[in-house]
Design a protein around this nucleic acid. Sequence first.
DNA 1: AAGAGGCCCTGATAGC
DNA 2: TGCTATCAGGGCCTCT
Length: 286
Amino acid sequence: MPELPEVEVIKQSLDKKIKFQKINKVLVRNRNLRLKVPKNFELFLKNKKINKISRKSKYLIFNLSNDTFLIIHLGMSGTIHLVSNRNNNNTNTSFYGSLNLPTKHNHVVFFFKKYQLIYNDPRRFGFIKIIKNKKNLEFFFNKIGPEPLNKKFKTRYICNYFKGKKKCIKSFLLDQKFVSGIGNIYASEILHYSKIKPFRQAKKLSKIEIKKIKYFSQFVLNKAIQKGGSAIRDFKNVKGKNDNYQNEFKVYQRENLNCLNKFCYGKIKKKIISKRSTFFCNSCQN
DNA sequence: AAGAGGCCCTGATAGC
DNA sequence: TGCTATCAGGGCCTCT
């Protein structure tokens, strides 16, 4: 379940390896991703150069030659692997998203001079899409709200957005139209830091509480990026098991364990909110 | 308009 | 052992 930090880590890693490289060839093994990979996909990308790699919320963006863009969304089980062409026996292989290249579900392969970039996605909730000019790109991202790390994510913006909204705060943190980049794991973590119960109604939050949510959204995401993302179930990070944000989880998947906050004797509870498991402390979150 | 719920999908795990 | 049920989750869609 790659959220903003995981995608950022992938972006930074890819930047070092395939920026300014030319796509020599594309192989599509399975077109049935969340969006169908079009028939002319391979031909269209052939010989296009990657001029820039960026990220917007959970989307990876490749700026290609001729004002075209390739965007990749990893859904919840998508991973990206970068395999060196020099050794086909998988020793000294560079990869992102998993410690080993899976044998199944390698749906799309991009061939570069030195590397193969492999898009793997068992559940196929992710997609790869070509966008043909900057205006269309802007239109595509218009539907998406600001990132927590963006200047637009202001206390005033949040307060205004929450006016009259009965939906709970946890649901809003997952609502990409309101704020983009937070997924189910970090939403629980952010609310625990903020000491706010996930099922509180958005409109009933005080300004101070909203400031806390804003602050800890940034805090948690930044810390996760620093740690190289989280290695949970489908997502494993290139930096290895000992250095990732998973070890920092205060509530996620800690049901019935003690709250880690000093002087708090509460227990972590699990509750399903809008079909997603949500973790919180029954004592120190108000 | 806002919000609730369904759906897409496969793999891991639990229970019988 | 082998079957079925359940859960995991992001985002888009439909319905009220």
